[in-house]
Design a protein around this nucleic acid. Structure first.
Lengths: 191, 191
DNA sequence: ACCTGAACACCGTTCAAGT
DNA sequence: ACCTGAACACCGTTCAAGT
């Protein structure tokens, strides 16, 4: 194998990194308007060729997850803030998950991408920090006595995921509230 | 408007009905093998033109729901049988939902179609009988004292829907069992 | 009225040529 | 090595012509 690296490789790598960022930003803008936007349009907006987009993100799901990574991270970081703002950990827990649900509902395609088997690995990476944030909320609820100890944060996310699957109508919101109460009763019961 | 109906219309309607059935049967066979099978192939297998398929089923989801309608109905009808076979209503409940989950997992695309906003109306029609079946299981659990009264069957379906979203692996199955226990604890708690 | 199937539009994906 | 973008393959959708 060649151990010689041309000086241009450094700048090429930088260009590649810039392209990657440009693609992610273009996707972030365009997905918000139309979840089914052609990837060719994303490439055009990013100012790159179709092949470049395809090499960076082999599937549409890869691109969706990458495009929303920053937002997920931001929401994840708010867990502490929400806990501090509320006297009740349970109230904080609910508020945070409702924010998460509203967010996932807004980011078209994200919900499906998260549950897709193909992107299982990427999802695990994307949701690692989210799992930690949920862990904090869970711990606070346990400390407060509102939740039984021992629940896996991943289990809690799965249990609460109905929140972004109920229809975004008045009836759906009411159903969401009922289901939150039921799930919490289950989480509060001794293991 | 014309109040005259040519004699041929009757046979044309019959032909249209036959086409519809042929399309549904072709879709049922082909979806099982490949959920992304081109609709043109379904049309070919059914022996109809592309336009005919398109007129009967404007969207792919319409076709998916129609193709699996019979299976859903059949599974729905087994609720009574499952209840009679088990001494415990709760055990029957769990078995029936696990069968439902296995079935939905097998019928590629059905899970997504069920939660799609576009097909909301069709879903309501498709799941009417299923709601009744779940109602029976719920009532039996309530009578047995394993579940608090007053839960809406639609809520119960939504709560249990994690079953067909957990990965079909050993870890996923284990997670499913944990979540069943948690959800049941929640359903058992007083409203 | 319903049907066929060729024609069209569109988009994902590849790959030869360029830097 | 990375990139461009034309070319290709494929599939959903339409619609003129047929019965």
């Amino acid at each position: 194998m060649s151990d010689e690296t041309p000086a241009t490789y450094g700048t090429q790598r930088q260009a590649a990194a810039r392209n990657r960022v440009a693609i992610i930003e273009a996707a972030h803008e365009l997905f918000a308007g139309n979840p089914l936007v052609p990837l060719s349009e994303v490439a055009k907006r990013a100012g790159v060729g179709a092949g470049t987009l395809y090499r960076h993100f082999p599937t549409r799901e890869d691109l969706i997850l990458a495009a929303y990574q920053h937002d997920i991270d931001r929401l994840t970081a708010t867990a502490d803030e929400v806990l501090q703002r509320h006297a009740s950990a349970k109230t904080a827990f609910i508020e945070w998950f409702e924010a998460l649900a509203g967010y996932i509902r807004l980011k078209h395609g994200l919900g499906d991408a998260l549950h897709s088997a193909a992107a299982q690995e990427v999802v695990k990476e994307s949701w690692g920090p989210a799992g930690a944030a949920v862990g904090k909320l869970v711990d606070a609820c346990v400390a407060e006595g509102a939740m039984a100890p021992g629940h896996d944060p991943a289990d809690v996310i799965m249990l609460m995921s109905f929140l972004w699957r109920v229809p975004n109508t008045e009836a759906g919101i009411a159903q969401g509230r009922r289901l939150i109460a039921t799930v919490f009763a289950g989480l509060d019961a001794p293991a």
